[in-house]
Design a protein around this nucleic acid. Structure first.
Lengths: 134, 134
DNA sequence: CGGGATCCTTACGGATACTG
DNA sequence: CAGTATCCGTAAGGATCCCG
């Protein structure tokens, strides 16, 4: 092995290309992009609901009763801005809006599945609950 | 199909069991657990470094020069508290501490891989950078 | 070397009330 | 119905300095 010349080598599965070799948090890194997509409280729950098919604003409110309209609107706006969710106004009265995942949004499904299975693995190992983080 | 009795059905791959059917963010949900494990700025970068093998505090500082000692200590403390990372003091002077992933910590590898590949997918679709989130 | 202690700023998220 | 407007408390995270 080269002694000191190469700082260190990353596992090729973990870091397949140069975009993963950043020395600081950077929006060009795929990991950050994926993390940003699911970040924010309630976001994964909203995504989970939409994975089952299009829903209106109040469908979502009914499915997630403790989520305030403000935060729900925030989440939907952010997801929309990232092209993960699309909104479609249905003409007429009362006003209705249908939210649906875009194809980019559907691409998050394997991530949610991975989160679930890794999380289950951690729980089965008896890892401690989050607690106060700092 | 039952007409209105069942509120709605989740995809079994996405939500394999009842722990994923929460109506609010909850530490019992595997998704939240996994998300908590990688949450926080710099966390995935620290994990990436440790995936290559044990490192000392200043090894990590050298690998991530823009990460302040305070935040690095924060991250390591949190990861330690969650049993994802273990610390080992090396006796003698100057003081040295070696950090390594626990087996639970190694369980995060597939999650990081999934984050990378889903993030790449999003980037290749030309999704917008994070931007101001709220 | 490996941290801890302080201070400060901002961004997030919750509550409540209101509107087209 | 589908949001917006406002206010507010908290916690994350960066900077700086210090200690064993």
């Amino acid at each position: 092995m080269g002694h000191q010349t190469e700082t260190h080598a990353f596992d090729a599965e973990l870091v397949p290309d140069s975009r993963g070799r950043t020395r600081r948090p950077s929006p060009e890194c795929p990991v950050e992009v994926a993390l940003a997509a699911v970040s924010g409280r309630w976001t994964t729950l909203v995504l989970r609901e939409l994975m089952a098919g299009p829903m209106s604003f109040s469908d979502l409110r009914a499915a997630l009763p403790d989520l305030s309209p403000k935060v729900l609107a925030d989440r939907l706006r952010t997801l929309d801005a990232r092209d993960l969710v699309g909104r479609q106004r249905i003409p007429g009265f009362p006003p209705r809006t249908s939210y649906r995942l875009t194809t980019a949004g559907e691409a998050l499904r394997p991530l949610l599945v991975a989160l679930y299975s890794v999380g289950s693995e951690l729980l089965s190992r008896g890892s401690r609950p989050p607690g106060p983080q700092a």
